[in-house]
Design a protein around this nucleic acid. Sequence first.
RNA 1: GCGUCUGUAGCUCAGCCCGGUAGAGCACUCGGCUUUUAACCGAUUGGUCCUAGGUUCAAAUCCUAGCAGACGCACCA
Length: 472
Amino acid sequence: MDEKQDLTNLEQERLRKLEGLKDLGIDPYPYKFERSHFISELQKKYVDLANEERTEDMVTVAGRVVNQRNDWMFVDLVDDTGKIQLFSDAKTRPENLQELFKLLDKGDHIGVVGKIRRTPRGALTIDMETVTVLSKTLKPLPEIVEGKRRRLGIADVETRYRQRYLDLIVNEKSKDNLYKKAILMREIRNFLDDQDFVEIETPILNTEAGGAAARPFTTHHNTLGLDLNLRIATELHLKRLAVGGFERVYEIGRIFRNEGISIKHNPEFTSIEVYWAYTDVYDMMNLTEALVRYVAEKVTGSQQVNYQGTDIDFSKPFRRVSMQEIVREHTGKELVGRELNDAFEQHCEEKLIQPTIVYDYPIEISPLAKKHREKEGFVERFELFIYGRETANAFSELTDPQDQRERFEAQAKERAGGDDEAHVFDEDFVNALEYGLPPTSGMGLGIDRLAMFLTDSASIRDVIAFPTMKPL
RNA sequence: GCGUCUGUAGCUCAGCCCGGUAGAGCACUCGGCUUUUAACCGAUUGGUCCUAGGUUCAAAUCCUAGCAGACGCACCA
């Protein structure tokens, strides 16, 4: 088959234009281009320029052509910072520009030199004097057509995730989500680093995946002839670091769990775990609350955010309530153990819209947390709920190696009984505890979920650049 | 894993109930017009109707199986 027949007319047309550029001696994929300004800098600098006012200021910008009107008389150019209009009168433009525009398409990257003015209708505009092709596009940008209206966009959400580069070109919100997630991660680090925490990387490949109740992904090391598991938490290694003397340690990292995919779940996601020696779960409550409040402000500019139509207020002290109390409040029942947790998940969780710290968890479901200093059958643990979703999980860490061994043994029995999500016995971790972990509190937080709240994203896929997809 | 819905031109969709040689708008190309913001006017081009099989003289349309996706439920952070 002739390869050309597989291409759409639109693509063949662009290939023809590419050849046309080469025929003119133009390199459609040059190496470098020096700009005098980012577009947003120009918009800011000339904000007071009046309508119809012209300047003699020569500027150089570069970006992607996102729209063109009247035979390239008006062009909208976008760079990483903003959008500006370009102008060239079809009647009076020089021959070389006339020829060049015939070979350009919407979507192409160009560099432009020209003088700044403001049109009678108020658009800041550069009168194009020279135009440099910076990258010729061979495929048209996706557009959404609504009746006779059309605009850049992608109607099919699958395409947005599979071809994120297109999504980023045409959807400002998608780019903003990822930008804000980057700010979120930066500010978490700033917050902790300011308090002398250090970030240390721990292994992703492990013989056993411990530290959480989840099924792992498995892989294989060839030269060792060894099956390995991808980590499901960073917990056990970070606590080993605490044993080794890192009193304030954390890791932001990718976690892999072999579970279902949903609007709230991606097989790989980003967590932060923090371990803080010589403190207990109540100190960690304060740290977590302060951290969440701080990043909300830094990412959104406010401590009050709107998520999917609901106002969430991070500015007020978070409600703190024991699991038994909240279950009593919603069911009138006095429960303990798994029944308590089941009732909590069934009747209470989804009602915790405003940030709420729920503490005192049953010991059965918390094999890495220290026994409650007063309440029999409970551990010193809390979870932070926002919009009914578990967002953070923390305990006074279990430091007693003999107790830890017994807890692992109880988990091993459940695993033997068919629960393939029960914790794995980690002998070396118990060994580490036998060398002495000081009193320590620890906390884990789902960064993607927090990013969802701070970007008003309905799906976790909207805050992960390349979410897991089935191959086509 | 279960349920509901969807798959037709580059894009957005109509046609399917009731079988009869594939339609619209936009995009692209060409021509006209020219200070626009969805520019406008005219013409042309463009299709493996998701895939495979079946029924039929005849299938986008009816039947069966499959593939892909969205949403909801279950598991999970």
